[in-house]
Nucleic acid binder design. Structure first.
Lengths: 345, 345
DNA sequence: CTGAAAGCGCTAACAC
DNA sequence: GTGTTAGCGCTTTCAG
């Protein structure tokens, strides 16, 4: 492969000047820059990332760490971050952090995860890290701090780490307001639980939002109208079935995610009920699949969340460039579709 | 950060020996190795990936290039490859290769993609590449060859690149055989098209398999029973609706993917038809979502496909380790669920 | 089996 | 604005 020396020779300058010109440093005369760029192009020269990293201490590479590599929310957030980072000239190295099982909260028996924090993440390959919806143990946090590189956590506030998180209470409130404004008073809650990493953060906030909205509206909290499940379509089916079969049925269902809502959708129809005539249904996320079923949702723009996390990280990596100092807001919004309608009198 | 020198001092050996010991080279006495490992552990030393790369020429890093970063099939294949690679001690950097639009087949107006092939991929950051379901232009192939690193293509045979691909003809044949054995004679085809990169490879093979099966069974090919759509749920809905509304309706539908099948499922039910009593339905892929709807499918194990591609690449990266020389088979299989049943007489 | 020494390809002071 | 000169932190001949 062509090295910098060749380019220097062809352009008739020193390697230092080639380096400066190609890095876009200001201290290069236009004429020289032009000659260097031509020489580089003619030779098909591209700098060696490793050599550049070693010499400069900057990798132009950031790591994204995710608990799941093929679930919609995670990969969509990742894609958002990826685009911002590559547009800024960074490469992205993807790390998989296996969730700890509930019966092994410290990951004593999670070798892949141990290796990640003991080795992979410490190899100095990245300039910074984005951790998507991941809960770390104290030891892991210590390990991360040891590398002395910026870390941004997305959707999981944790001690000592800059975090971006959507306002889950407000999201739940928005969903409930929509239902309440349509005149519903018996509203069921298909809640989600996260069966790993002992993390009840998001599910808890959404449930709290549900209950608070009910109380604010002067309505009672009926335990028979609430049921939890994993954040999966199957879970939503079962939880909704249970709610619909117990006591006086609700006229509306609020599901803590779109996947749960899709499951609830099937459960409602399987009981011979119509949507929205008999039961209104709303979810959370913005999963395109919900659109196919006409399910009203609160879109939380996971791609934008990933992009925001990436921008936040870039801000720390390149303090020189001017960035808005304002706190990051992760927006969300109601998307009305045909699964919600006025309650019948 | 601790450097190799510190470890050498603590262990009372030279840096060369530390390097050898930690790399697992055989030419180190057990006693020395032991001392070095202890010293490294005590100091929390982890080698710098960049320094090691520069000195050795090996990155222990492979690139995965994908046209979509958040679609189930792609991310599932990626996850399969990721696991094999990280288990082998490699990091994975993820590249996004934007598909070329049909009105710009050479990507003249696709700056992100141009940059990928002109820069990112040439920075010598990786030891090899896995390209998932991606069609390259001649120029891109040339560019790739220039870097002189092994490349494995998954599910897209192309000139000059080692490729792994599932037998799409056989898959279609298996699906059709299932339907035919159930006594169906009017079978519709919800076909997929790929509206980018001018690539009609997979859709074409699946359609050919459909037609060939019909011919083999002595049945006629009825154009009214075939309709193409994008590989999306929406597309499946529309295509199925059209088939069900034209001429004498089929008693079974074969969809070229599970997403198409899910759309078809909704279309069938929306016309007041029952599954499988009125219409049988089969898809392709193994998408877990199809399971929720009870849709029979041909599972093609995308995770295993990704893993196979990764193993194939490792074989080229580490010719020393013993590997089976046998050609790679990508298996698939019929998964019967409740969407298919005997045709009524 | 181990050490000394020469780079890997580039960048960053420091001169001029 | 540009060249010279040290390294960045590690691996790898080459000796012994």
């Amino acid at each position: 492969m062509t090295r910098i020396q060749k380019v220097a020779e062809l352009a008739g300058v020193s390697t230092a000047t080639v380096s400066r010109a190609l890095a876009g440093k200001p201290s290069v005369s236009p004429a020289t820059r032009e000659r260097v760029e031509r020489a580089a192009r003619d030779l098909g020269y591209v700098v060696s990332a490793t050599a550049s990293s070693l010499a400069s201490g900057r990798n132009r590479n950031v790591g994204i760490v995710m608990p799941f590599l093929n679930r919609w929310f995670f990969t969509t957030a990742m894609a958002g971050a990826h685009r911002v980072l590559t547009d800024a000239g960074y490469d992205v190295t993807l790390y998989h952090c296996e969730p700890n099982r509930l019966d092994d909260p410290d990951g004593a028996d999670n070798p892949r995860r141990s290796r990640l924090f003991a080795d992979s993440l410490l190899r100095k390959r990245t300039d910074g890290l984005i951790m998507v919806t991941l809960s770390l143990t104290a030891a892991e946090r210590t390990s991360l701090h040891g590398i002395g590189k910026p870390v941004i956590a997305l959707d999981r506030p944790q001690e000592g780490i800059t975090a971006l998180a959507v306002d889950n209470l407000a999201i739940a409130h928005t969903a409930m307001s929509h239902l309440l404004e349509l005149g519903h008073t018996r509203i069921g809650f298909v809640g989600g639980i996260v069966p790993y990493d002992l993390d009840f953060h998001v599910p808890l906030l959404r449930r709290q939002g549900y209950e608070a909205s009910l109380v604010d509206a002067g309505l009672e909290i009926d335990p028979l109208l609430m049921c939890d499940a994993e954040f999966t379509v199957d879970g939503g089916y079962d939880a909704a079935s249970q709610i619909l079969g117990a006591g006086e049925p609700p006229t509306a269902l609020f599901a803590a995610s779109d996947e749960l809502a899709i499951g609830a959708h099937a459960a409602i129809r399987d009981r011979g009920l119509r949507i929205p005539e008999d039961v209104s249904l709303i979810g959370i996320d913005g999963n395109p699949l919900a659109e196919v079923f006409g399910i009203t949702t609160i879109d939380q723009h996971p791609d934008a969340q990933g992009a925001a996390a990436a921008r936040e990280l870039l801000k720390e990596l390149e303090p020189t460039s001017p960035h808005a100092a304002a706190a990051v807001r992760l927006p969300f919004e109601l998307v009305e579709r045909r699964s919600t309608a006025r309650a019948r009198d």
